[in-house]
Computed example of a mutant assay.
Amino acid sequence: MKCYSFLLLFIIAFQVQAQQSDFETINFSKADKLALKCKNESLKNISNLASCLTDGLTTGVERFRAVFKWVTANISNDYSAYYRNKRKRKRYQSDSTKLNIWNDDFKKVMISNMIKHRKTICTGYAYLVQQLAEASGLECEIVHGYGRTSMTSEEDLQFPNHSWNAVKLNGKWYLADPTWASGIPDPESNRFTFDYNDGLFLTNPKLFAVNHHPIDQKWALLNESPSYDDFLNAPILYGNAYRKLNVIEAPLQFHHDINKNESVTFEYELASTLDKDALRFSIDNGIETKTVKPDSYETKDNLMTATYTFHNVGFYDVHLLLENSLISTHTVRVRR
């Protein structure tokens, strides 16, 4: 009986997992064309822009798609503003009065710059998506919390550093990150380049939780939300993980301590079927980097399981590649 109850709970949890595939019968081409058609519309009148974006769209998800695509295609990430805000927040972190004053003043400047120059930071992206979504008749929230990328330091996570959105569609809440979906910075110059990532539009919450941790855990949209420590210890994900994957089942931690001749198993739910030769590991021991095939590999219903065995003692950076796209990074310490 207990096994049956557990299975039933698992099935229910799986069924309520809110993700883009819930709308696989919806053709978003009309919404995407409207986002392109309204490219030159002003941000000074949110209602007019929302009307332009949703003209003739009959479903809530299409309206949200048009809003999301417009924001991610027309608003660039202002890294100078991000770093200025980061410095000020660090400076005032022990003085709540000055911090609140700075936050209020910065919000006004951020909104003004977004309207005039179409540049902002994550809170501006989330704010604009919310405003346009609500003007389109949708229920949408700004979610504040922690975001972790390959460039995020421990210092960046001393206080909440990221914002994104939750939107209600057909009575169910979904997650979307317009900031990370819009593009990427050059790691050397921090210049922004538009590079839309559809994987961050109505993302599966289990995948989203690997590098997003909301302050209010109800916005994780999971029956059992990862703890903050789980979030800190999770593997590093890259943008292509959202393009290639639906869920990471294992491993859910960044670092692994194993013994010589032991294996690490990787289990991912793929967004689409891939050839077995699409998977490679890039393994760096600090002296040399080699690209290798997994020791074992199998897929069933888009669930990919692969293992790699470490025969030599040492410390390794392990990068998983799918179709030559960097997906995730782990570290492995191999002992005798």
Rank of each mutant, 00 (worst) to 15 (best):
I101P: 02
R63G: 09
S76V: 04
S112Q: 15
K108S: 11
R84M: 04
T54W: 12
T54Y: 06
T97A: 14
K88A: 11
S80H: 06
N103V: 09
N85M: 03
Q158M: 12
S112I: 12
F106Y: 04
K69C: 14
R63A: 09
W102N: 12
K86S: 07
M114P: 00
L57F: 00
V67S: 01
S51F: 08
T97N: 07
E134H: 08
G124F: 03
D156V: 12
G124I: 12
I115S: 10
N74S: 15
V143K: 13
L99N: 02
Y82I: 09
E134A: 11
K86A: 12
V61N: 05
K116C: 03
G147A: 11
N113C: 13
N85D: 10
T58Q: 12
S76F: 08
Y125R: 01
N85E: 09
G147K: 09
K44G: 08
T152D: 11
Q158W: 02
T59W: 09
A73P: 03
D104Y: 06
C38F: 01
K116A: 07
D95G: 09
I111C: 11
Y79Q: 15
I101L: 15
N77R: 14
K86E: 02
A50R: 00
N77A: 10
Y82M: 07
W70Q: 04
S42N: 07
C140W: 01
L132M: 03
S153I: 11
R63H: 10
A135Q: 06
I46E: 04
S96E: 09
N100R: 09
E41P: 02
D95W: 03
R87H: 05
T149K: 06
L53Q: 02
Y146A: 15
I111F: 05
E139S: 08
C52F: 13
Y82C: 07
L43K: 00
S112C: 12
T152Q: 12
L132I: 03
L99C: 07
K108H: 01
D78W: 03
Y125M: 03
I46L: 08
S51Y: 04
E154T: 13
N45L: 02
A50L: 06
I75Q: 02
Y83P: 06
R84V: 09
S42Y: 13
Y79L: 07
E154D: 13
S80T: 15
S47H: 06
K37E: 00
